[in-house]
């Protein structure tokens, strides 16, 4: 038994098993393990832990991640995906806000439930404003029909 080498192995057993040591050091430690019961036990314990971790079941997503990411992709990617499209979207959004305000002024509080949508448009002016524009139209008409 060699105290210095035992301590060395205790310090580097993971790197040894992970194949992260230089050849010479690896060879020296392997040689030592061959002649030291204590270090052979350390290695056996380390291997047992690796096996236990490998046997852990992998947690799986509750839902496909894309479902939520796709909804917010345009906003995440931000402006400039296509300059022409963006200009058109910005213009449409501005027109939508004006129209929405106009409808809102006609119908009063009943059309005012969309403040969130308006501020979304104001803050992003991205490719998704087409959808928000639809929402404003629909809510405006809902307000009038109810």
């Amino acid at each position: 038994m060699n105290r210095v080498e035992c301590r060395r192995l205790e310090e580097r057993i993971e790197a040894l098993l992970d194949g992260e040591l230089a050849d010479a050091e690896q060879a020296a430690l392997v040689r030592h393990i061959g002649s030291c019961e204590k270090c052979a036990a350390v290695r056996a314990g380390a291997k047992r832990l690796h096996a236990a971790l490998a046997a852990e079941k992998r947690p799986e997503p509750l839902r496909p991640v894309w479902a939520a990411v796709g909804d917010r992709f345009d906003r995440a990617i931000g402006p400039r995906a296509s300059t022409a499209f963006r200009l058109a979207a910005t213009f449409a959004a501005a027109a939508g806000i004006i129209l929405g305000l106009f409808i809102g002024s006609l119908t009063g509080p009943s059309a005012a439930g969309n403040e969130g949508t308006w501020s979304d448009i104001g803050s992003t002016l991205g490719a998704e404003s087409g959808t928000s524009l639809d929402e404003i139209y629909l809510s405006g008409f809902d307000g009038e029909s109810s």
Binding site: P61, V65, W66
Partner: peptide
């Protein structure tokens, strides 16, 4: 983006 997400969602999660 969808391809990338579907490729990596399980290990990331």
């Amino acid at each position: 983006a969808r391809i990338l997400v579907e490729r990596w969602e399980r290990p990331v999660f």
